[in-house]
């Protein structure tokens, strides 16, 4: 029973990563935008949702006690607004500028999480983030299972939504812009605006992931949103297969499993005082893996599938 409860917990965390991966897949897989500040966008979502939903607290601003759904919506809105701002600033320039600026966003947001104590609770973070199914908390298994169900439902809903978009005129236009920007422009498409939309959509999804995670764990602190997270998510998407939404979900579960298992292994093998040191080897392994995949199988496990617009119907020969 305890093992099952742990499995449910493990899968729930993996599914929150899957949400981030789906967001990144919109930005990178479908649009080719390189975001190095994922942790910042996820953290922003987590904090916004926490501030909106936590009970009032004397030591800081916020604590509006709103329902969790309002927190999620606020997080997505915040993620979209931040993405729009970053996009407007950098998308007209070379692609590396977006990378550098998003990197900077994550650094700057990390400082805000750490230092704006009256808003974020500072280094100690915020406790009492309301958890869905808090009534089950006595029974770890039931609690984890219920949360797993909610998180899976979010992943499924996002997956269906993104697949719908991919096959919509919007998805087709995005593919056209990615294939040949000049030709798409000559056909009246506005590449800058499409990229901006895709970047904002991805940012909103990442922020939603942060909110979902914060409410599952019930606690939020700056240490959850280190550059490490950005790096893990990239490894997940590249391993799973960028451009492919199923690949994004598969990669999240797989890399998170490798991460959790290697962490458990280190805890077994190394003495307690050497564990922090050994944990850095985990990162080395993931980093090397990322580079090897880029070198030898850049399409990942599940390569991108050519998607075709819906509503094309069958051709009626005698029409």
């Amino acid at each position: 029973m305890e093992l099952l409860a742990y499995c449910a917990f493990f899968l729930t965390i993996a599914m929150t990563y899957a949400i981030i991966c789906l967001g990144l897949n919109v930005q990178w897989g479908q649009t080719g935008l390189f975001n190095v500040g994922i942790a910042g966008f996820v953290g922003l979502g987590g904090y916004i949702s926490a501030i909106l939903t936590t009970p009032e607290a004397a030591e800081r601003i916020g604590g509006f006690g709103l329902p969790i759904a309002a927190g999620w919506a606020g997080a997505m809105l915040g993620g979209a607004v931040l993405s729009l701002a970053v996009g407007l600033l950098t998308l007209r320039m070379r692609s590396d500028y977006l990378a550098i600026t998003t990197f900077g966003i994550a650094v700057a947001l990390q400082l805000v999480f750490q230092n704006a104590e009256t808003l974020t609770g500072g280094a100690f973070g915020m406790a009492f983030v309301p958890r869905p199914f808090a009534g089950f908390q006595g029974n770890a298994f039931a609690f984890n299972l219920a949360n797993l169900a909610v998180t899976c439902a979010v992943v499924l809903a996002l997956y269906l939504l993104l697949e719908h978009l991919l096959r919509s005129p919007w998805g087709r236009t995005l593919r056209a812009v990615r294939e040949d920007e000049v030709a798409a422009q000559a056909l009246g498409k506005n590449p800058a605006s499409l990229r901006l939309q895709a970047f904002a959509l991805g940012g909103a999804i990442m922020a939603l992931a942060g909110a979902v995670q914060a409410h599952f764990i019930g606690f939020i602190a700056p240490g959850n949103f280190l550059p490490m997270m950005t790096f893990q998510v990239w490894a997940m998407l590249i391993v799973g297969g960028s451009g492919n939404n199923r690949g994004a979900i598969l990669g999240a579960v797989l890399v998170w499993a490798i991460w959790a298992l290697s962490g458990a292994l280190i805890a077994e093998v190394f003495p307690a005082d050497q564990q922090a040191r050994a944990a850095s080897l985990q990162i080395v392994v993931i980093g090397v893996m990322l580079c090897l995949i880029l070198l030898w199988r850049p399409q990942g496990i599940l390569p991108e599938i050519r998607s075709v617009s819906r509503h094309l119907g069958r051709r009626h020969k005698d029409q």
């Binding site: 919509s168 005129p169 236009t173 593919r175």
Partner: peptide, 20 residues
């Protein structure tokens, strides 16, 4: 658009498609 179908190529040129 080499990786898109011939039909999609033509449909991409439609003007005023609200779903874009």
């Amino acid at each position: 658009f080499a990786r898109m179908t011939v039909l999609e190529n033509v449909m991409t040129a439609a003007q005023g498609q609200s779903g874009e």
